[in-house]
């Protein structure tokens, strides 16, 4: 079980725009000071894929693997691991953060009504997506 973290993304100090992927310059006002903040983690599922081929052993052992793209209510589009049953286009989702086995903070998307604890099982053996 991996610890579930709030969704924290960079926000421009000058104009308040939420940024993703992480960057050094605000894509809206070119501000140069961005601060990581907890933001609303709701969004809409834009698309998804079931992956059957990977370049890394940690995924190869767990294939197939579900990945989703999500438009957050705060604006940015994120690519995230998906936990749960096969997603539906346009469904309401929530996005949380966990540490992956390589200690990278990664995003996990799941149904808006699902228990977010399920995201903690993603990188536990046999607990991944299907």
């Amino acid at each position: 079980m991996t610890k579930i973290g709030n969704l924290q993304l960079l926000v421009c100090d000058d104009c308040g725009k939420v940024q993703y992927p992480d960057r050094e310059i605000c894509a809206d006002c070119l501000g140069g000071t961005l601060t990581r903040k907890t933001i609303d983690n709701g969004g809409e599922l834009l698309s998804w894929t079931r992956l059957h081929a990977s370049l890394e052993p940690m995924f190869q052992q767990a294939l197939p693997w579900l990945i989703a793209s999500v438009r957050l209510s705060s604006g940015p589009v994120v690519v995230a691991h998906w936990v749960g049953a096969e997603p539906t286009m346009g469904q309401a989702v929530q996005v949380v953060m966990v540490d992956d086995p390589q200690d990278r903070k990664v995003l996990v998307a799941l149904d808006a009504d699902a228990d977010e604890k399920a995201a903690g099982q993603l990188f536990v053996a046999d607990g991944g997506s299907a």
């Binding site: 993703y20 992927p21 992480d22 992956l51 081929a53 990977s54 370049l55 890394e56 940690m58 995924f59 693997w65 990945i67 994120v78 690519v79 995230a80 691991h81 992956d100 390589q102 990278r104 990664v106």
Partner: peptide, 11 residues
């Protein structure tokens, strides 16, 4: 590297 590769390492 930050926002795509960690998600399945499939480019």
């Amino acid at each position: 590297r930050q926002a795509v590769y960690p998600y399945g390492a499939a480019g």
